[in-house]
């Protein structure tokens, strides 16, 4: 180990690598997320098929709600694992910048969500019999994933030290993420209806603005969230 403190991008990379390594070994978060999202879709299918004749109109909502809740599982696990195994204390005792912990957590969760969607979209296409594999969907998914992860990471980190984290995480996160869900669901709907980019481009921008604001605000405050 070198004596000098690594640059922030190196810190982020190492922490990110650590997260991926844990996931690669345990195969815990991603598996849970996929299975959970799948279950959600099946439940939605059964609960809406009878009344809403065309399930296609519900797909954007179904997709983003399952992504939201799956991400909740993953974030909860990610931070409580660090808490239980005292990793967070270990990391805190190193000269690592809290900002790089935040960035690595957001990055990891974003990657997990992207992976989840790569698996989920074909499954939705098959199970709900309607193709949603549009190339235009990629930016929407990306800004949405970043938004969910950016806010989710800081809220999960702050709640990780409290007793009631499992119950409170969705309660606090859902209203905070409303702009993201609103924007992404609307944009996804427009894309599925094969509308031109002028009909949904501003939604991608709004969610991107949300991402920037919340990443900055959370980045500025993250050291408060993990200090003890």
């Amino acid at each position: 180990m070198s004596k000098s403190i690594p640059r922030i991008d190196q810190q982020v990379f190492r922490l990110f690598y650590r997260e991926l390594l844990i996931e690669f070994r345990a195969k815990e978060q991603l598996t849970t997320m996929v299975i959970f999202a799948l279950t959600t879709i099946i439940i939605f299918q059964f609960s809406f098929e009878m009344r809403a004749g065309n399930i296609k109109v519900l797909i954007p909502g179904v997709l983003w709600i399952s992504v939201f809740f799956a991400s909740m599982l993953s974030l909860n696990r990610s931070f409580s694992r660090d808490q239980e195994e005292n990793t967070s204390r270990g990391i805190a005792s190193t000269p690592i910048d809290p900002l790089s912990i935040y960035i690595s957590k957001v990055l990891t969760n974003t990657i997990f969500l992207c992976a989840l969607e790569v698996i989920l979209l074909p499954i939705i296409t098959v199970l709900l019999n309607s193709s949603i594999l549009y190339i235009n969907l990629i930016p929407v998914l990306l800004v949405g994933n970043i938004g969910v992860s950016a806010t989710g990471a800081i809220v999960a980190a702050t709640l990780a030290n409290t007793k009631s984290r499992e119950t409170l995480l969705p309660v606090i996160l859902l209203p905070l993420l409303l702009p993201v869900l609103l924007g992404c669901i609307t944009a996804t709907g427009a894309i599925i209806d094969e509308q031109p980019i002028t009909k949904y481009g501003h939604w991608v921008q709004i969610v991107a603005i949300y991402d920037i604001i919340f990443t900055l605000a959370s980045g500025l405050m993250f050291h408060f969230a993990i200090e003890n």
């Binding site: 800081i154 905070l176 609103l182």
Partner: peptide, 27 residues
């Protein structure tokens, strides 16, 4: 600890208000 945690939520909640307003308005 609780005070710190809730301060962060209090700040995020405030930041969220104008964005929510704007997106619902646009919607």
């Amino acid at each position: 600890q609780t005070a710190k945690v809730s301060s962060i939520i209090g700040i995020l909640g405030f930041v969220n208000v104008p964005i929510t307003y704007f997106s619902v308005y646009l919607w």
